[in-house]
Design a protein around this nucleic acid. Structure first.
Lengths: 147, 147
DNA sequence: AACTCCCGAAACTTTTTTAGTTACATGAAT
DNA sequence: ATTCATGTAACTAAAAAAGTTTCGGGAGTT
């Protein structure tokens, strides 16, 4: 299947909420227009972000807010909330256990893959939502200055 | 779609060739039995590994060999050969350019994602095929000792 | 109380990617 | 010439993600 864009869409939602706070109505319809997707997809992600402790929402009232300051929320927080323990690399789970390679490669590769994933996640943890928002606003200012 | 196991299967193939060199006939049928897949899948991966400079094969003769010593081939080498520039994280490519967030998030996230990918790849580069083979053989020895 | 707008969830469909299968061309060894 | 093998193409099946339709129920407004 296609590679999931849920992680990037969830970041988009959070950044949108911070940037447009009190500027536009933060309904799933509005956010969906920015992402270019269906409002139901946005509501699914919002429900996950809420369940993961990153967002506060109220049914019937379009006023989602971050539960923690953007300076505290990291990209890793979002990743873990949306993707959970889904690995970045997939070990073939059906190898032949009667073979020396087939019987030992799964736990072996799983460990090496885990180390690579830890490295990637450590890097995601160094970036906050505020960092991303700052960069977006700088890029936008550059666009407006370049006109 | 399901997460690809090509990367792990390709590593399996290379490890199998080193471990079983001159011990069994290294045909795609044999290797496929260890992986638990179809010989055609193995031949596709072998063709890619050959094209990527990691394997030497000859049509009509089952005698694949590593082009470089296992101590020199890294997991990153295999990843790049099999997955090429396929990213670990996917940025939604269809965001609304007329919006501040939708119009700037793609290049912004792409850069942060790239940094995380570099970290993961650096870790993959620290592991050689020989490291993996050593670990597999140690695990197998432990299994045999534990019987 | 009724209405409108909204979140959240369920069920179904569509799309995309990966793996599996079948088949064939061609090379190497016998 | 035959057998065994790699490599490739074309097609099918399976799995996952996104999109769509629908509905329940909450919050605010009238």
């Amino acid at each position: 299947m296609k590679m999931s864009t849920r992680f990037s869409d969830a970041i988009h939602i959070l950044a949108f909420i911070v940037i447009y706070k009190e500027k536009v109505q933060l309904s799933s319809d509005t956010i969906a227009s920015s992402i270019g997707t269906s409002p139901v997809v946005v509501r699914r992600l919002m429900a996950q972000l809420k369940k993961g402790g990153l967002l506060t929402t109220v049914p019937g009232f379009a006023d989602p807010t971050l539960k923690k300051p953007a300076e505290v929320v990291t990209l890793l927080d979002v990743y873990l909330t949306i993707e959970g323990d889904k690995p970045l690399f997939s070990v073939d789970p059906k190898t032949n256990p009667a073979c020396i390679v087939g019987g030992n490669i799964q736990p072996t590769l799983t460990e090496y893959y885990r180390q690579a994933e830890v490295a990637a996640k450590a890097k995601l943890q160094q970036t906050t939502l505020q960092d991303l928002i700052d960069t977006i606003l700088v890029r936008q200012a550059e666009k407006e200055a370049g006109k």
